[in-house]
Amino acid sequence: MMHGALPKIRLRGLRKAFGAKKVLDGVDLDVPAGQGTVILGGSGSGKSVTIKCILGLVEPDAGEIEIDGRDVLRMPRRERQEMADRIGMLFQNGALFDSLPVWENVCFKLLAQNRITRAAARDRAAEVLEQVGLAASVGDLSPAELSGGMQKRVALARAVAARPEIVFFDEPTTGLDPIMGSVIDGLIADVVKRLGATALSITHDIASARRIADTAAMIHRGRIVWTGPAASLGQTGNAMVDQFARGEREGPIQMELRR
């Protein structure tokens, strides 16, 4: 991690509980600008909730969220909206609008911001769909007519179509075949490199994490317990991370039935 440089996103002491269940219990995280960062962690450890807090979809109970050094939680609504306009998000389950054809889904943000005409949007959609390995003709289908993996790729196209400064990818390659998985990893790495975007991804796939991220962070019991270079995953020397990366049953992380 570059020291001294202002992180794009800075989380400090982020806390969130749903009822009695503490999901985030003081998350501290720096996401460096113009790089890929990946969050690892067990199922239900609060990875998606962390991202939803940054997006403003979940109101944290306590803590600070800074983007470009500015406190987003205490920002006026309009400025927060402007901030959100520059962020793209891939939801874990796709969250495509099933009342709209694929091409309108892909260009939804560009159309909403009046940055493009409806005629130009079709061409732009075809272009982005091609990047995620889908033919332009897919644009005329409805999301319900697509397979799960195709929906994922359309959702990915929608997340990057407006050329965001910051993109969140919540499990971008889950449900894809291995080849398509590495194509998507390539696309994410490309978005970071070519557009200079800051990408924060969630994944359970260690190989994919190495491909799309420079930095990795591990969340456990509501806190970030380790941060380090993604390339070192598997031999970090941190027993918890190494156990997670190698998928071993024995180690400091015990499967919890309920928390």
Binding site: K52, L55, G56, L57, Q81, A84, D85, I87, G88, M89, F91, Q92, N93, A95, L96, F97, D98, S99, F108, K109, A112, Q113, R158
Partner: peptide, 20 residues
């Protein structure tokens, strides 16, 4: 039914992230 389905499948959250 329509808006409820959009809520539980995160489509309403998605609208917010898409400047709408």
């Amino acid at each position: 039914a329509e808006i409820g389905t959009m809520r539980v499948t995160d489509q309403i959250d998605a609208l917010t992230t898409l400047s709408t």
